[in-house]
Amino acid sequence: MEASSKTSIFVGAIFLVVLAVVPVALFYAGEIFWIDIFTRLVILAIAGTSLYLLLGVAGLPSFGHAAYLGLGAYAVGIPVHYATMGGAEWLASYNGWWQFSLAILVSALFALVTGAISLRTRGVHFIMITMAFSQMIYYALISLEEYGADDGLSVYSPSEFPPLLLDNPIHLYGICFGSLLLVLYVVHRLQHSRFGRVLQAAKQNETRVLASGVNPFKYRLLAYVMAGVIAGYAGALMANFSLFISPDMVEWSRSGELMFMIILGGSQHILGPLVGSSLFILLEFVLSRWSIYWHLPFGIILLLVVLFGRGGIIGMLRRDKQS
């Protein structure tokens, strides 16, 4: 146990150092393409870590987590749209504080309402209902002509956080990476707090939690809202990164990808999503150069990891160390 947690800390430290140094070094060496790849990786890792709070800690397999990425992204895109095109004075703004607050508020509300309903179900039903709610957002966005419907919406100008400039790739990457560190730390603390214990206990044996004197429902709902808020925040970063948003961000297969990343990296360890999203981005990059049908080998690799590497990449590392 001791040895295995040391391995994980070691692997995690390597990942974080690489993420802190490599993209910045490449950028100043003139390889500006790489920072885009790393920024996307880090944003996905933030979203993945928020899903880890549900899936890994609380055992709630939400299959609609991409909805929050979309809500967060449109909370940036829509105010920018009005600020550029005119209209909706109360909403229109380039101000990042306003946009990000909006992203967090909308995500929290959506999570609160849908969570209060979804968390009354278990297992497959929970998976289906969370997916259904996220598809509702998908179809809502597709039918909103005002915001480009399925053509998507350009974000003409990134969020303004003076003196930081989000159109500077290094600044944007710094904010994303700093956010990832903060999210990892917060989720780590949550996981080991009294609150986290209730979630973990309820994941293993709900009846025993009830028989111990705690009704886990409200704790789960709160975790659901927290995860939604973090993912919404990641969505707002995503809008600033890609400067183009579309309903595709919310499609159910995106939620599936988030889940894949966690399973690939290891759903039982806080660094699983980071390792998973890194591998996801790497495989996508390598395989898509090799063939346009890269999803096939990608799927096979995922299948192998799920079949033979229970606990994902981190799980395999930990087992090697133990044996």
């Binding site: 603390r189 949550l190 080991h192 707090s193 009294r194 609150f195 986290g196 214990r197 209730v198 705690v214 704790y219 709160l222």
Partner: peptide, 8 residues
């Protein structure tokens, strides 16, 4: 158990 920070 709405205590979110201190480890149990």
């Amino acid at each position: 158990s709405y205590r979110f920070w201190r480890p149990v």
